[in-house]
């Protein structure tokens, strides 16, 4: 074998072993646990905080409103859909106040006329002409419309 080829082979073996060593050291521990990914990332994603805690949690402190809402046509709407995420509010209600959506535009998102809205799914109103001077909540109770 010519000397230059020998030298190259030695060099090649060194480079490849170095690479394999690096690969071994640098691959994350949980990689390949379930598939070609970092197994730990599953737990990391699962551990993210929940912000919309659900209407059931409100019963503890706002039982009358929950009960009221359940009787009305808004029963399927989550409290937090209108009031925003309550993950802070349920712990420190005095400090972290929730949103009070009292504008006409807010109700209009669901109730204004739009030919695309299925009529069976929601009752629509001509928002421009339906008592335009007042807020909706002066006449309709948002919790039991």
């Amino acid at each position: 074998m010519p000397s230059q080829l020998k030298r190259l082979l030695v060099l090649g073996v060194i480079i490849i072993s170095l690479f394999l060593l690096l690969k071994h050291l640098a691959t994350p521990v949980s990689f390949g646990q379930y598939g070609h990914y970092r197994g730990n990332s599953l737990n990391e994603i699962a551990a993210l905080p929940v912000k919309y805690v659900g209407s059931k949690t409100c019963v503890k402190c706002h039982d009358s409103i929950v009960a009221l809402k359940l009787e009305g046509l808004h029963s399927d709407i989550q409290c937090e859909n209108c009031h925003g995420p309550a993950y802070l509010h349920i712990k420190t209600p005095k400090k972290d106040k929730l949103f009070r959506p009292d504008s006409r535009e807010f109700c209009a998102k669901c109730h204004s006329f739009n030919k695309a809205r299925p009529e069976k799914a929601v009752t629509q109103q001509d928002i421009k002409n339906h008592h335009p001077e007042k807020k909706c909540i002066t006449c309709h109770n948002p919790h039991q419309p």
Binding site: I45, A46, A47, L48, V50, Y52, H74, Q78, E80, A121
Partner: peptide, 20 residues
């Protein structure tokens, strides 16, 4: 995924007013 793993529904599903 973080909600599914805690037995909750995804936020978008929970907050759909018509259960679409």
């Amino acid at each position: 995924y973080h909600r599914l793993k805690k037995g909750l529904n995804p936020a978008c599903m929970d907050n759909c007013p018509t259960k679409a």
